[in-house]
Amino acid sequence: MIPLEGEMQSGHPIRLAPGQRVAVIAGSGRLPANVVEGLAAAGHDPFVVLIAGEADSDASLRTHDHATLEIEAFGSLAPLFRKKGITHVVLAGGVGRRPRLWRMRPTPWLLSIMAKALYGLSRGDDGLLRTIVRVFEDEGFKIVGAHEIVPDLLSPEGLLTKAAPTAADRRDLDAAFTAAKTIGELDIGQGAIAIGGRVVALEGIEGTDGLLERTQAMRDHGRLAAAKRGALVKCAKPGQELRADLPAIGPATVEGAHAAGLAGIGVEAGRSLMLDHAELIARADELGLFVIGLPTDKS
């Protein structure tokens, strides 16, 4: 069963009937590979759309039936999906830029949805995602979340590592969780960092990697020289489209948190993705960081 917008499915993958096929629109990061690997492991034949400049360098995705498209060429997607027999679509991975309108290639399908597309572009990241979802569903395709393809990607609640947060770390988790939810309400970002019970950095357009790099720079420049430990928290934006752009962490997040001098990472349980889960936890244990799934009603 495909969940309705705003709902999360509790641990059961979608079941494809004979003749149904999934397309994965692949952006940057490890999420597209995790989704494609999950589909292949279940015996399905995914079609992968590599967004040029985002996912086209991932050789593992090219082992499957695929096409590479500039983001401005997405007006050709619906006809391509019909040609490939696509019934379900997954949006996976990041996109570093928005389409340049003057470079978009006009197609009959694009012209038919242009008003919706322009409206979505004006509504911020979550508004754009909601518009994309509606456009594809109006064309008869089912949009499904990455967590519906690979349910194990969803973060469970509770401590996941050998290291555990101290009482001081818990205060950092609380502060960062509240801050992350606040900026999410404004459609700014999904993450925040707190050190010493005080929020010191918020995620912006540069994403989590940039957030961690800024925190590391503040340590290196002495702005946080006296502050110890600290925590990164990522959580879903209030009311966001949950079938796309769920907050995610992976081994690279653990490396970045360690480089920034943080003690650990908290993610909103059931509404966040953990990529390359076994590697992520193993690396956190090696570095002595905690990783914890926080209850969604924490705030």
Rank of each mutant, 00 (worst) to 15 (best):
residue 1 M to L: 11
residue 10 S to H: 06
residue 13 P to S: 11
residue 13 P to R: 06
residue 14 I to G: 00
residue 14 I to S: 00
residue 20 Q to C: 10
residue 28 S to P: 06
residue 41 A to E: 15
residue 48 V to T: 05
residue 51 I to D: 02
residue 64 H to M: 11
residue 64 H to P: 01
residue 68 T to W: 02
residue 77 L to T: 04
residue 81 F to Q: 02
residue 90 V to W: 04
residue 90 V to R: 06
residue 94 G to M: 10
residue 94 G to Y: 08
residue 102 W to G: 08
residue 106 P to S: 14
residue 115 A to Q: 14
residue 115 A to D: 13
residue 117 A to L: 15
residue 118 L to Y: 09
residue 119 Y to R: 14
residue 122 S to F: 03
residue 122 S to W: 05
residue 123 R to G: 01
residue 126 D to A: 07
residue 127 G to C: 03
residue 128 L to N: 12
residue 136 F to W: 02
residue 137 E to C: 05
residue 138 D to P: 00
residue 138 D to W: 03
residue 141 F to G: 00
residue 144 V to D: 00
residue 147 H to L: 00
residue 151 P to G: 04
residue 152 D to K: 15
residue 156 P to E: 07
residue 158 G to Y: 13
residue 159 L to W: 11
residue 161 T to Q: 07
residue 165 P to D: 13
residue 168 A to E: 14
residue 169 D to R: 01
residue 170 R to M: 13
residue 175 A to D: 03
residue 179 A to E: 02
residue 179 A to Y: 01
residue 183 I to R: 03
residue 191 G to P: 02
residue 191 G to A: 15
residue 197 G to E: 05
residue 198 R to G: 02
residue 199 V to M: 03
residue 207 G to Y: 08
residue 209 D to I: 05
residue 215 T to A: 11
residue 217 A to Y: 04
residue 217 A to D: 12
residue 220 D to Q: 13
residue 221 H to V: 02
residue 221 H to K: 13
residue 224 L to W: 01
residue 239 G to V: 14
residue 242 L to Y: 01
residue 244 A to Y: 05
residue 249 I to S: 01
residue 256 G to Q: 04
residue 258 H to K: 14
residue 259 A to S: 10
residue 265 I to D: 04
residue 267 V to G: 12
residue 275 L to F: 08
residue 278 A to W: 03
residue 279 E to I: 14
residue 286 E to P: 01
residue 287 L to H: 09
residue 287 L to S: 13
residue 289 L to Q: 11
residue 293 G to L: 10
residue 293 G to C: 10
residue 296 T to K: 15
